[in-house]
Design a protein around this nucleic acid. Structure first.
Lengths: 140, 140
DNA sequence: CCCTTTTTCCCCACTTTTCCCCACAAACCT
DNA sequence: AGGTTTGTGGGGAAAAGTGGGGAAAAAGGG
């Protein structure tokens, strides 16, 4: 379970730390992929990634469909592991996609972790909060 | 069950005590999150947090919806535990959000606890009392 | 195919923050 | 009144954030 919002520096080598609490649930490394729909990088634990890709595969009705799906999902995914300081290297294609320059906002989103550029996060946050408050006001 | 209203100092390290009576129901630590709608910090027991987040997740109708919800709810939540003196460290993003400077008003609100800035609480209290008396007058 | 250049990865180093512990004074309870 | 609990402050050890050097591996060009 991942919580919270943490700003981290991305150094010249493209490395970003994740919070120690997150690392402890990611000992076997992580899968980095494009955020679905959103301009961010999604960080999956290995088990979460397996669950997701299995679930998607079930949904593909035709073989051609499945091939396209696999291409899209696996084509933009990279595995990564931590260096001695708890950092991962962001693959350039993903870093470009999310427009992350020298600061990354690490956001815990329950089963997943997301990496945002400062600007991207400033834009997304209100929209997510809006969505959330609608659901909350509809009665909890 | 949490009662009452207590002012506490926030020290230079961002630590706030909770009343001993509250602590005793929070031995396994707490989850701090943004007040929903209000500019305060909400303190949940672990079980209360689980109940809330599960309930919210049920309400999401689409995957995109659920992603935004998780982002908003979990992204602004932090886990915390008590030091030897019964204090917790307020995460900077939440402290900023609630505009808590050097004094926090700790308010017991039945299943939850809230942390307010002095000014925020002065503004909110009359509005809550007003609302409450309307509900009470409508028949208890 | 080999040599050069670039990238990756592991290690070390420094600074800041966090967390755990101790200390004291005020309040409370009996 | 005396002992216990609680509010408040701070010191110091440990952990985390940040930056960089250099060997190994990969890529690219002649």
């Amino acid at each position: 379970m991942f919580f919270g919002e943490y700003p981290y520096k991305v150094d010249e080598k493209g490395r970003v730390p994740l919070p120690p609490k997150f690392r402890r649930e990611m000992k076997e490394g992580v899968i980095l992929a494009k955020g679905m729909g959103e301009k961010c990088i999604t960080v999956y634990t290995i088990v979460e990634w397996k669950r997701l890709s299995d679930k998607l595969a079930e949904k593909a009705v035709t073989p051609a469909n499945l091939r396209k799906l696999n291409r899209a999902i696996f084509g933009s995914a990279f595995s990564a592991s931590f260096d001695g300081q708890g950092r991962i290297k962001l693959p350039d294609p993903l870093r470009d996609y999310a427009k992350i320059a020298d600061t990354a906002i690490v956001v815990g989103a329950n089963t997943r972790v997301e990496l945002w550029s400062e600007e991207g996060w400033q834009a997304e946050k209100p929209s997510s909060e809006e969505q959330a408050s609608q659901i909350i006001e509809s009665g909890v």
